[in-house]
């Protein structure tokens, strides 16, 4: 089963680029990605640019409306994701524990929907 691991953290919380511990923090990400690759479960993943760069799009009455900013203004922001192919939720939880942001933020695990007839 594929799980989307959504990486949320509060702005300014956790190691920042100017902090000495930032290098270790990033190394943690490389290590996690490497573990996923080696386990053969990595199906994708990216870091995202800041929510200040986000644009929302919707169509209402046939007209496209675009808005500056993220969909929901919350304290914790989506900063990146992985897509991991795990045997079950327990494995997904174990893998999510490796994401360095879990130390100060939150990882939301969402199973990817299986559409019947898709396989």
């Amino acid at each position: 089963m594929q799980y989307l691991a959504l990486i949320y953290s509060e702005d300014g919380v956790g190691p920042q680029p100017e902090d000495p511990e930032f290098a270790d923090y990033m190394a943690g990400y490389f290590k996690a990605s490497k573990t996923y690759e080696e386990a053969g479960i990595m199906r994708g993943g990216n870091a995202l640019q800041d929510t200040s760069t986000a644009t929302c799009v919707r169509i209402r009455g046939g007209k496209t409306e675009t808005m500056d900013g993220p969909f929901a203004e919350t304290k914790e922001r989506l900063g990146g994701y992985y897509v991991l192919d795990c045997t079950d939720l327990d494995q997904a939880i174990k893998m999510a524990e490796l994401i360095p942001t879990a130390q100060h933020g939150t990882i939301e695990l969402r199973p990817v929907m299986i559409i019947p007839g898709d396989t």
Partner: peptide, 14 residues
């Protein structure tokens, strides 16, 4: 069912 919560006895560590 949807999140594949396993049907198993947890490992020693857990």
């Amino acid at each position: 069912q949807a999140a594949a919560i396993p049907f198993k006895i947890p490992e020693r560590a857990d």
